[in-house]
Amino acid sequence: MLPSQALSPAELRQRIRSGDHRGNTSGFAQGFVQCNLAILPAEWAADFLRFCQLNPRPCPLVGMSTSPGDVALPPLGDIDIRTDVPSYRVFREGELVDEVHDIRELWRDDLVTFALGCSFSFEEALLADGLEVRNVTQGVNVPMYRTNIPCQAAGAFAGNMVVSMRPFRAADAIRAVQICTRFPAVHGAPVHLGDPAEIGIADLSRPDYGDAVTLEEGELPVFWACGVTPQVALEKARPPFAITHSPGCMLVTDLRNSRLAVM
């Protein structure tokens, strides 16, 4: 049997669907776009779409279902959105109430799916340029933090941005900015470098999501807008029902990262 890292996106989704892979997806199906997930009742979908349009850095829209109740996302692959993500979070009235590996029993005919770009895609470009990505080196989920950076509101959807962090020395941080600027569909350039307190982060060793990574002497923490931001917006908006991915557990698509690059 192939190791998970060597599987194609379709093979990895089949392994996820069968329950054989339930962890995070960083470093898997290299070369292919991974997506954050938000699923909402149709009556909330227009405002959430507008929230994404107003906040493209944390919420870059890659795809969405063509009609309420549709479990497929044809442009992104042979996908059943109810089974093809390793772990889902279930929200009711804005409160996280459960974390599950399959949402078939929760599925409703009025649900609309949004697939949002993920930083795992630009990590590949950083690695290809010879830069170390610390969470990949250490084999952990990327650290993610709530900030004081406000998003633009759309209807009931509002809140502050969540960011992911990767440490680099100054010269490598500059190179990372140059590389990631070419990938606006997967968060683009960093939103902040340096002092985390300036964006409301008190302690890098205690991320709100994911795992802490080592920050070596002489390195700068570099922060990117993160697709967990919609989960904060859901907490503010308090829709009666919503589903997201669990942080780090992404929808792996058949769309190649190279198609998202701006040359």
Rank of each mutant, 00 (worst) to 15 (best):
S4L: 14
R17S: 12
D20G: 09
G27R: 11
F28D: 10
Q30N: 13
F32V: 08
V33M: 08
I39F: 04
A42K: 08
L49S: 04
F51Y: 14
L54F: 09
R57E: 12
R57L: 06
C59H: 09
M64K: 14
P68Y: 07
V71P: 00
A72R: 12
L76A: 12
E93S: 13
G94E: 11
E95R: 15
R108W: 06
D110R: 02
T113H: 13
T113W: 14
F114G: 05
L116V: 08
C118A: 12
S121A: 12
F122P: 04
F122N: 11
E124F: 09
L126I: 02
L127P: 00
D129P: 04
L131C: 02
N135V: 10
V136T: 04
G139S: 09
N141C: 08
V142M: 14
V142D: 01
M144F: 00
N148P: 06
A153R: 05
A153L: 00
A154W: 08
A154P: 09
M165V: 05
F168I: 01
Q178F: 01
T181M: 15
T181G: 03
P184I: 11
H192W: 15
D195P: 02
P196D: 07
A197G: 06
E198A: 11
I201C: 08
G210N: 12
A212R: 14
E216F: 01
E216Q: 13
E217M: 09
E219Q: 15
F223R: 08
C226P: 04
P230S: 01
Q231K: 06
Q231L: 02
E235D: 12
T244G: 02
T244Q: 00
T244A: 04
T244R: 02
M250P: 10
S258A: 15
M263K: 10
